Simulated assay, not measured.
Amino acid sequence: MSSPGNATDSMNAALKCSIIPNQEYLLQGSVLDQYVEVLLHRLRGLCDNVDSGPESFHDHELCFSLRIANTGTTTPMSVFALRVRRSLDVTNTPFQLRYIGQQELGDKNKPTVVRTSIDIACSSTITDFLTELGCRLDFEYIARGYMFRKGRMKITVSKIFKMGGNKPVGGVEPISRSYLVELSVLAPSGQDAIGEDMKVFAEQLRPLVQLEKIDFKRLGNMM
């Protein structure tokens, strides 16, 4: 078994060589309930595995934040977003821990959001570990919908439900009369050409859904 130091060195070397898919390219939009079947029909025609159909999912997601005080900087506090997702309809699957970084502040003309994203499979005790670490549960929700793939692009069409009661599978209600649509790609750093491919694909879904680059920082300031 390798030592922690060797494992860290290997990870850093992999990052420098752009081997690890640590960047998420993202576009988001929404479609009204009455048009979602039309959108699903179009996605079946555009995406891979037409014969087998899309993959369905029914997940429970918890969104944590970890606040770390900064010393000697103009920013008093750094906030790290961590998400834990588990499947509600597939048993014996690992929980998924996801770190999501801040949206890159580079070229505003980039066609998609670009942010750091790292996914790790973990055990069901991850929520206890995060709580002991000092993380705060900000919110949680149920996501139910379909996932499509077009090459390395992933398209999800999700109905988002509020949590109700003490059990995640009971007492839920939809937060809106629409579905969240996300087009994303996970890739190593520096592959900005992916954004152009995503933009071309997104154009094929108009006018049913308008997939856009969302400014999360601006959205947070408006809330």
Rank of each mutant, 00 (worst) to 15 (best):
G165Q: 02
Q96H: 09
L105Q: 09
Y146H: 15
Q96I: 13
I160G: 03
L137T: 04
L137Q: 04
Q96V: 12
T127M: 09
F161C: 13
T116C: 13
P168F: 00
A81R: 13
G145C: 01
G151L: 06
R85D: 03
R136F: 09
S123K: 07
V114H: 08
T125H: 11
M163F: 08
V172T: 14
P111M: 05
K154G: 10
T116G: 15
R149F: 13
M77I: 13
K108S: 08
D119R: 08
D138G: 07
I126M: 10
G106A: 10
K154V: 10
N109I: 08
L97E: 01
E173F: 12
Q96D: 05
Q96E: 13
Q103A: 06
L88K: 02
V114N: 12
R144Q: 10
S123Q: 07
L97N: 00
V169K: 12
T131C: 07
T75G: 05
V84A: 04
G106R: 07
T125E: 15
F80M: 11
T93C: 08
F129L: 09
P94C: 04
A143S: 15
G101A: 01
D128G: 10
V157C: 06
P174R: 03
S124P: 03
I142M: 04
G145A: 03
M147W: 06
I175V: 15
F148R: 00
L82G: 03
A143N: 09
D89C: 12
S176G: 11
T131Y: 06
N109P: 02
Q102C: 07
S124G: 09
K154H: 12
M77L: 15
R86S: 13
V113K: 14
K167F: 07
T127S: 14
R98A: 13
Y141E: 03
V172F: 10
G145Y: 00
G106W: 06
M153D: 04
P174G: 00
K162A: 14
M153K: 05
E173K: 14
A121P: 06
P174S: 08
G151I: 08
V114G: 01
T125C: 08
K159C: 01
S158P: 01
R98N: 14
M163H: 12
Q103S: 05
G164M: 00
I118G: 00
I126C: 02
I160F: 01
F148N: 00
V157M: 06
N109K: 11
G164Q: 03
T74R: 07
E132N: 10
V90W: 04
Y99T: 04
T127A: 05
Y146D: 13
L82C: 01
T131K: 12
G164W: 03
I100T: 14
R144K: 13
I120E: 04
T116Y: 13
R85A: 10
K150I: 10
R149E: 13
I120P: 07
L130S: 02
R115P: 06
R85L: 08
T125K: 13
L133D: 04
F161A: 04
L82T: 01
F161D: 09
R85S: 06
R86C: 13
S158Q: 09
R83M: 09
E132Y: 07
Q103M: 12
